[in-house]
Amino acid sequence: DELEDQIQVEAGQYIPYPIEEVSLDFEVLGPVKDNPEMVQVLLAASRTENVEVRTAALDLGGLNTKVVDVEAFVMENAFRLIADQLSVTRDG
């Protein structure tokens, strides 16, 4: 909770929109090499309006949204899943 609060406070420095208009998520990557008391954090942010448009489209299609991810990460994960599936198909 403390880290999440800290990120909320500091995120405003990096995001060009009012923080109340933004949906945030983060992942702790690990300690900073030169300062083990600090951690590296990957911050993902999107205007809440953009998230709501996408979830509304899924709702119209009868689907429930569980996760909204960054498009570049989605592509990377999809590629990895396809590659793994192709590997299984060739090997199996």
Rank of each mutant, 00 (worst) to 15 (best):
A78Y: 12
D69G: 09
S23L: 12
A11P: 02
V41S: 05
F26R: 00
A72P: 04
L43V: 07
A11K: 01
V70Q: 00
V22Y: 00
E10Y: 00
N50A: 10
K66V: 12
F26K: 00
P36I: 12
P36N: 01
P16V: 01
N77M: 14
Q6W: 08
V22L: 03
A56L: 11
M38F: 11
T65Y: 04
A57S: 10
D1R: 05
A57W: 03
L43F: 02
L43G: 04
G12I: 08
A72N: 02
K33E: 13
L58H: 01
D1H: 12
A57M: 11
Q40N: 13
Y17V: 11
G61L: 15
D84K: 10
E10F: 07
L60S: 13
L42W: 08
E52S: 09
D25I: 04
S46A: 14
L58D: 06
G92T: 10
A83K: 11
A78I: 09
R54M: 13
T55N: 09
L24I: 07
V9K: 11
D84C: 04
D25K: 04
V41R: 02
E10L: 12
E10G: 08
V32S: 00
E20N: 10
T89K: 15
L24D: 06
A78H: 04
V51W: 04
E37Q: 14
S23T: 13
A45W: 00
V53Y: 06
V70Y: 01
L3R: 04
E2A: 08
S87I: 14
T48L: 10
P18L: 10
N64Y: 07
K66Q: 15
R80P: 02
L86I: 11
I19M: 14
G30M: 04
I15G: 05
N77Y: 06
D1C: 03
N50T: 15
S23E: 10
R80S: 12
F26S: 03
L60Q: 14
M75E: 10
A11T: 02
F79K: 14
S87N: 09
G62A: 06
I15F: 03
